[in-house]
Simulated scan of single mutants.
Amino acid sequence: MTDREMEIAALAGHYSDADIGANLRISPRTVQNHISNGLRKTNTLTRQELFELVLQALGTQ
Results as ranks from 00 to 15, higher is better:
residue 12 A to V: 10
residue 6 M to G: 07
residue 29 R to P: 03
residue 42 T to P: 01
residue 20 I to T: 04
residue 2 T to D: 12
residue 46 T to D: 00
residue 20 I to P: 03
residue 5 E to Y: 04
residue 1 M to T: 09
residue 20 I to D: 04
residue 27 S to P: 01
residue 4 R to V: 11
residue 6 M to A: 13
residue 24 L to W: 06
residue 19 D to N: 09
residue 24 L to A: 08
residue 1 M to C: 10
residue 56 Q to T: 15
residue 19 D to C: 10
residue 14 H to C: 10
residue 48 Q to D: 13
residue 16 S to K: 13
residue 59 G to K: 03
residue 44 T to P: 02
residue 42 T to M: 03
residue 44 T to Q: 11
residue 12 A to T: 12
residue 29 R to K: 14
residue 29 R to L: 14
residue 60 T to Q: 14
residue 60 T to M: 13
residue 42 T to E: 11
residue 37 N to C: 04
residue 52 E to V: 10
residue 59 G to I: 09
residue 34 H to Y: 11
residue 9 A to F: 06
residue 52 E to M: 14
residue 44 T to A: 07
residue 8 I to G: 04
residue 59 G to D: 06
residue 1 M to S: 09
residue 55 L to S: 09
residue 36 S to I: 02
residue 1 M to A: 10
residue 7 E to A: 10
residue 50 L to W: 02
residue 14 H to M: 14
residue 29 R to C: 11
residue 50 L to V: 10
residue 11 L to R: 15
residue 47 R to A: 09
residue 55 L to I: 00
residue 50 L to D: 02
residue 34 H to T: 05
residue 18 A to M: 11
residue 56 Q to G: 10
residue 52 E to I: 09
residue 22 A to I: 01
residue 19 D to E: 15
residue 41 K to V: 00
residue 27 S to V: 05
residue 30 T to G: 05
residue 23 N to D: 14
residue 17 D to I: 02
residue 54 V to S: 05
residue 57 A to E: 12
residue 60 T to S: 13
